[in-house]
């Protein structure tokens, strides 16, 4: 379970994030939508203790993320290309993450074999460093690397952006499968309302750093969101 308490983040006098209270239940699949600058990435970065909140804190499983590092072994994330090591090949990167998360090569290989159609033959055995892959293929590597080592909390920032339609559909299936596991909490942000309503059980809309909507997904949700953003 993730709990956000009185969280604000201010950059040079401008408040970019201001959340009084937000709880995300274990096993939930949680979607975050909002326009550019709404604070989605800031919230995820604070959750990963990559930025220091101006006030308040975030707890993961009862542990304040900025006080202990105990949450790290249960949490994985892909935010942007700073989560990739450019001079490694995809395999080397997966094995490196695997070693950090206590998985041996065989474990990683087993996991990867389940995603062969997602990779679409463009990732493994490519004789290329990650920095030379296209943006979309880099994203595929980052997303799958975030699944290594049975994490209980998976944070994906804009996972659908830059992906081709086929891969988007496959990714939706992957996220839905993850969500069926009651031990795994998935947090996804997106600009694409359709994708996010399809894969998330709960959707929170951020606007200028504040929570303006908190919806349990239903048939009507997509319409409701479209109306909200069409104002």
């Amino acid at each position: 379970m993730i709990a956000v308490q009185n969280l604000t983040k201010t950059y040079t006098g401008k408040t970019v994030l201001n959340i009084d209270h937000l709880e995300i239940q274990k096993g939930n699949s949680f979607g975050l939508v909002g326009n550019n600058g709404a604070g989605k990435t800031t919230l995820f970065s604070a959750l990963l203790d990559l930025i220091r909140p101006t006030t308040g804190h975030i707890e993961s499983n009862g542990i304040k993320v900025n006080e202990s590092e105990e949450w790290k072994s249960r949490t994985s994330a892909f935010i942007d290309e700073t989560f990739l090591i450019g001079y490694l090949t995809a395999e080397e990167y997966f094995y490196f993450i695997g070693e950090l998360r206590g998985q041996n090569k065989a474990d990683v290989d087993t996991l990867l074999s389940g995603f062969e159609d997602f990779f679409h033959g463009e990732i493994l055995g490519q004789k290329k460093y990650l920095r030379d892959l296209s943006k979309g293929n880099q994203k595929k590597v980052g997303i799958i690397a975030a699944l290594i080592g049975n994490p209980e909390v998976i944070v994906l920032d804009e996972p659908f952006a830059n992906l081709d339609p086929t891969t988007q559909i496959r990714l939706k299936k992957i996220i839905k499968d993850l969500a069926t596991n009651p031990e795994v909490t998935v947090l996804v942000s997106s600009h694409d309302l359709m994708h996010v309503t399809e894969v998330c059980e709960r959707i929170v809309v951020l606007d200028k750093g504040e929570v303006v909507k908190d919806i349990a997904t239903s048939q009507e949700t997509l319409k409701e969101l479209e109306e909200h953003f069409n104002k």
């Binding site: 203790d49 935010i79 090591i85 993450i97």
Partner: peptide, 12 residues
């Protein structure tokens, strides 16, 4: 430096 956020969010 180019992948420091990764290192910082792993259990290192």
């Amino acid at each position: 430096s180019s992948y420091y956020p990764l290192m910082m969010s792993q259990n290192i």
